[in-house]
Design a binder for these strands. Structure first.
Lengths: 130, 130
DNA sequence: AAGTTAATAGTAATAGTTACTGTTATGTTT
DNA sequence: AAACATAACAGTAACTATTACTATTAACTT
């Protein structure tokens, strides 16, 4: 059983993709990165962009926003936030102590806030115990 | 030009979908709602489920989590949160005053927190001014 | 220089969601 | 109560974001 760590080779494609993501503040999606990278490497393929973005996320060199692509619904329209257990995938409703801190914080930034979406992720009690 | 408000008619399908979503705490996705609703209305179509879920969200009777399906990336791996302008769609990096409040808050709930994802949505300075 | 295999380009497949089309049924008007 | 207008439907096709597959290319090792 070969337990050597998988070697990561250099590739111009990955290096360019990293530079593209690091060079902007627009929080791009994969397609934006693809189009920008094609300006430098015209025949790069979309699959390569996705593969490398995922690798760069895994190696901690870039961040990924929105882990779950799927939309989810909640019949409870009262004010609350969400916690998702990364082990069992369950969603929990949680109550944030005081949302007013966001309001004052937003005013400082000159934003007019319409909604908060606080999602915490981690391990729930059940999964910690077992 | 007809400016009458669009009338919403009653349908057993929509009513059942609403009950299904309101009857659970699992924060279901569309497919779960579809399967559950089919136990009551066996020949309901998936399109009907999606259409009604969206309508129920619009009329404020249920909540939608994760507005944007698309994944986005960020070359800035430093600690920060995000604000999205619903008018122009732009994402802004923002600094939350003190994330430690989430930690203490999470301890109360017996969760082991691995990551925070705070996303604020609203209107940005630019769009407010113009 | 030869060999190994990670990474690639290009394409096919998958999953979640929306759009389309002809039919059904709700609410309204005679 | 019958006729009407159209919201909503079931069923299916289309679309979009993402992943998987395959034969080829090119980094690194020996």
């Amino acid at each position: 059983m070969n337990m050597e760590p998988i070697k990561q080779r250099y590739s111009r494609q990955r290096e360019t993709i990293l530079q593209v993501v690091q060079s902007t503040l627009v929080h791009p999606n994969a397609d934006w990165v693809y189009k920008e990278t094609r300006k430098i490497i015209p025949n790069i393929s979309l699959g390569t962009v996705y593969r490398n973005l995922n690798q760069l996320v895994e190696s901690g060199r870039i961040l990924k926003l929105k882990d779950e692509a799927m939309v989810r619904y909640d019949g409870n329209t009262g004010q609350h936030d969400h916690f998702r257990c990364s082990k069992c995938g369950k969603w929990y409703d949680v109550e944030l102590i005081d949302q007013s801190i966001f309001k004052s914080f937003a005013e400082k930034h000159d934003f007019q806030i319409e909604s908060f979406n606080l999602e915490l992720e981690g391990t729930c009690k059940n999964c910690l115990d077992s």
